[in-house]
Design a protein around this nucleic acid. Sequence first.
DNA 1: AAGTGGTCTAGACCACGGG
DNA 2: CCGTGGTCTAGACCACTTC
Lengths: 255, 255
Amino acid sequence: MAQAKYQQIADRLREQIDSGQLAPGQRLPSEPDLVRQFDASRNTVRLAIALLTNQGLVVTRQGLGSFVTEPAQPFTAVMSRVHVQPAGRQAASTLPEVGNAPAEVRTSRQVVEKSPASASVADKLEIAPGDLVVVRRRRGTIGSVPWMMMASYYPMDIAAGTELELAGDIAHGSVRLLAELGYPQVGFADEIGARMPNGQEFAFFGLSTGTPVIVVNRTAYTPDRPIRLTRYVYRGDRVRLSHEVGSIPARFHNG
Amino acid sequence: MAQAKYQQIADRLREQIDSGQLAPGQRLPSEPDLVRQFDASRNTVRLAIALLTNQGLVVTRQGLGSFVTEPAQPFTAVMSRVHVQPAGRQAASTLPEVGNAPAEVRTSRQVVEKSPASASVADKLEIAPGDLVVVRRRRGTIGSVPWMMMASYYPMDIAAGTELELAGDIAHGSVRLLAELGYPQVGFADEIGARMPNGQEFAFFGLSTGTPVIVVNRTAYTPDRPIRLTRYVYRGDRVRLSHEVGSIPARFHNG
DNA sequence: AAGTGGTCTAGACCACGGG
DNA sequence: CCGTGGTCTAGACCACTTC
């Protein structure tokens, strides 16, 4: 046998999806149908469907059937917009702007805790792993769609005894507060990656199998040191990040 | 039954992975072992392992066993580095810089073709779907690790009769060539997303199941119009994108 | 040869969604 | 109620890796 039977079934179905013969949202043949069509056992048919599901091409719903994934219009998170000439604009907030929100953008009240820094947080903030940091968390929804989780990490020597330790929003934004505390932000570095979601992310976003998340680690700096790490997690099926550099005519913003 | 048996098995194994009891690179108990340990059938055990595999936590190798995924040190693709004060630096090339390459960065010779624009390409370039575009493709490896696929799309009215239609590298870079042709680039917009790989990407990168890819659509502009779309695809398990904004001390670059 | 995962079958019962 | 997918079992044979 050149190729496994479940692979062949998956390939056939993928062809039909790619060609549009099976359109987005359309139901695949039922499992018993596929069993007859390909002369295979039900388990083999289910293996084929699982393959497509994990590639994000198909979603299955118990009692209803398997459906070709319908891509949704993505939201655009504007991560930076820098006009090199004459002067750059720096965000006043760590909250990303949404370029094309079709509904109200809402953000949960900030939850604050102190906890020991993980290895990755410590590395970015240039502190020792296990050192205490202040963590400020919030989650974001657009209309009824959950789209973002974010957490900001502050070194304790900066945050101790300040408004940063208190729950709730910061009056004039954390960038301004940090500047008033003697830590003027002069720039930031974004490190962007993608991975499969953990259980918490899977549940909050209501993801289906085969959907990754986008992770952004944004480190903010004074001329001397890192002063904050903000970690953003976005659902991969509904969000695109936008970074703009240079003098882009306004009419081109966020397509 | 509160939860499916294969879910319980997967949860147990995940706990052991998260706690470090099963360290990265370590072999899981064999399938027959897990069958005995959890009093389940082999198919049920395999379902549990498949779950972890699709979450990117485990890789299986025939004849050897299942192993906890070993995260590799990621490469950093520097997508932009903008100093707001006094002046920004614009890349001379569409080729991303690698911030921390441990081996030689090699790039394939460019392959060129003409083809009709897909809907997504046409949208970015503000042309009609189906209009011909010049496509220039290349692939990149670091040492022996394939890490990038890129394709640049040029509207035919710009590229026709120019060096852009010829295979091979462009002598002084495409940004300079475009400027000489009367299309000076003044900025670009990056749109970043994540998804599961298609078959071609899976094969080229040698990915294992449960690994997403990062997709960057970079649109370059003159003051009047889009002049190029470059689409980058990176493997999610080995690449992080870097965007820097502001005056970040050099010692913090690609920490 | 022995041990590992990969593929496949046949059948059973459960859970969900919609008439 | 019926049709859909979800879970689980028991067993068979194949393919790969190591010794």
